[in-house]
Design a protein around this nucleic acid. Structure first.
Lengths: 153, 153
DNA sequence: GATTAATCGCAAGATTTTCGCGCAGGGTGA
DNA sequence: TCACCCTGCGCGAAAATCTTGCGATTAATC
């Protein structure tokens, strides 16, 4: 039913790098016909193996020049407060990812802002919350991303 | 030249959510013709505003069931050693992101492995390195992702 | 060894993207 | 103010790509 075979795994690996490859390109790399590759891709999308296909946008061009890892420590309280906080954080455009983690901190967020000043304002607005007992900020000096192997002509 | 106007920003916002929309769909949302949208998209790719377009794959289906944040502290040493380490980390399939950060740690990685056991093996193989003086692991219990607003079918 | 189910490749048809063209709006300088 | 250029628009044709029906092949089951 939802079985993933080696062809599927190959396709997923390729699509994780570049999801805009044509059926022909995929076919050549995995050794199937273009039609079969695309049929498999349809299925992978349908069963949720491919959750989404998204563009990665240069953050500076959206005016988000700095990245910070925010470690939030929550006040022990009801699940409701926690859910509410989570929902709120999910909706903030500055919040890129939310990890619920083990250890002294409860959440680790990756946050992107226009400037340090904007991050300061962000923390003042959102981290001084009844559900949050404290936070720590780790500033990202630079992010290293795996390059795309073959920036098409 | 490389100017980003409001149409571009709208397109980028839409493509960040779903980069597989057709020219027609984009056109309807931003109020331009399909051809113009696609021409802008070509340009956004060319100037690097759209860095990549990737599929987000359900990690379990790739056999990567757990996520860990690894905080690496480096031994003070030459730039060469640091560069070499960075290059090495970039190539590991388990390493999803690499942040070079301020604070006591030098690097924060997001690492995906099949199991805790696999993570342990991973650390033994890669974190006991002359360039690394120590590391801390924060296990991700759960990740909350912003949902895609309208899974078209 | 027959039957069933899955999936392949092929190729026609539908959809989407690319691109040349002519035109409108906005600066610029005489 | 008036040419003039430059940019970006929409239109529509051509090219590229994706989808799907079909018969054939293969693997598994009984």
């Amino acid at each position: 039913m939802d079985e993933i075979d080696d062809f599927d795994r190959q396709l997923l690996a390729l699509l994780q790098i570049d999801c805009r490859q044509t059926g022909d390109a995929l076919a050549e790399q995995v050794g199937l016909s273009p039609a079969s590759c695309l049929r498999r891709l349809q299925r992978l999308r349908r069963i949720g193996a491919v959750e989404r296909e998204v563009a990665i946008v240069a953050p500076e061009l959206l005016g988000r020049h700095i990245t910070v890892l925010s470690l939030l420590t929550l006040r022990r309280g009801g699940r409701d407060a926690l859910d509410r906080l989570r929902q709120k954080l999910l909706r903030l455009p500055q919040v890129e990812r939310i990890f619920h983690v083990t250890g002294p901190a409860d959440f680790v967020l990756t946050v992107r802002c226009a400037s340090m000043e904007a991050y300061a304002a962000f923390t003042e607005e959102h981290f001084y919350d009844p559900a949050i007992s404290g936070f720590e900020s780790i500033v990202v000096l630079r992010e290293h991303r795996p390059a795309m192997p073959d920036a098409a002509h």
